[in-house]
Design a protein around this nucleic acid. Structure first.
Length: 297
DNA sequence: AGCACA
């Protein structure tokens, strides 16, 4: 085992020694996540609220499959890395603390088509059959608008590779009691344990980020005693990291971390969001895209 | 909540 030939060229700070792990070459570049493990009474806004907070979020689609009383979702991101980051952040997290339902997330087989109208926030496809005896028809007449706009526009003559609607049916091998390691929580922030009330559903995504993706990150909520070296130590573990600049304007210090590209900054942000440093005062790092890119050298 | 450097 000779790992030494991976050594970076001496004196090249821009060298990326881990050009991003891509466990599945087939699905490299896929922008859409397949989300299973959802309860049958999941609402499209819940999916939207959850994923729209993730950096690089583009759009989502909830589909009530006719099978197994379960719904699946397709969540698309602007970059493949953003999709991977969201997947690692949310996969395995408890979606409903009441029932213990866990999210199962993987890369979709193909990208979800973007909603071209642009009017609706999220898309819904309801394939639930009313004639089938389900005994679980809890959303039958609550006046919900889940089936308001079931889109079925397969007039797809768009020359983008013929991406069809991702109709996955082989992914529902997730029984509610199939061996889900309940203690697989590897320190994931996971979901908040709101039971009785969902947090201001339709407006929650207003808090996410109206800041467009940038290859420079804005890092806040640093401890008073945080040093540039401490932060750089953490950042430099992430591919594409260039350099760090710290500022302290009276109060708490803030920092700007520049990356090679938006994919790198997005991945690092997702990975480091909320990280508690030794110098942290309260909570962890708060990272956003910077409003402007760091000036080049 | 706090976003500079040119």
């Amino acid at each position: 085992m000779s790992l030494s030939h991976h050594l970076p060229p001496p004196g090249d700070p821009y060298y990326v020694y881990a050009p991003h792990t891509h466990p599945d070459p087939q699905r490299q570049g896929v922008l859409t996540l397949f989300v299973a493990g959802l309860p049958d009474d999941v609402k499209p806004r819940e999916i939207h609220n959850l994923f729209s907070r993730r950096p690089g979020f583009d759009h989502c689609l909830l589909e009530y499959t006719g099978r197994g009383n379960q719904a699946v979702a397709f969540v698309s991101f602007f970059t493949h890395q953003a999709a991977l980051s969201a997947m690692s952040a949310l996969n395995g997290s408890v979606f409903d603390p009441d029932t213990g339902d866990c999210l199962h997330i993987e890369l979709a087989k193909s990208n979800s088509r973007k909603r071209h109208g642009g009017v609706g926030v999220y898309r819904v496809i309801d394939k639930r059959l009313r004639n089938k005896r389900t005994g679980h028809e809890n959303t039958g007449d609550e006046g919900n608008d889940d089936d308001a706009w079931c889109e079925d526009d397969n007039g797809g003559s768009d020359g983008d590779g013929g991406s069809e609607e991702p109709l996955d049916t082989e992914n529902d091998g997730f029984d509610e009691k199939n061996g889900l390691p309940a203690e697989q929580s590897s320190g994931q922030p996971g979901l908040k344990q709101h039971k009785g009330q969902s947090p201001s559903d339709d407006q929650a995504d207003k808090f996410s980020s109206d800041i467009p993706p940038c290859s420079t990150l804005f890092v806040a909520n640093l401890g008073h005693s945080c040093t540039e070296e401490e932060l750089k130590e953490v950042l430099s573990k992430h591919p594409g990291f260039h350099l760090l600049k710290m500022r302290r304007r009276g109060g708490m210090p803030v920092a700007f971390a520049d990356f090679m590209d938006i994919e790198s900054s997005t991945a690092a942000m997702s990975a480091l969001q909320g990280t508690v440093l030794a110098s942290s005062d309260a909570d962890g790092l708060q990272i956003e895209y910077a409003r402007s890119k760091m000036r080049k050298s």
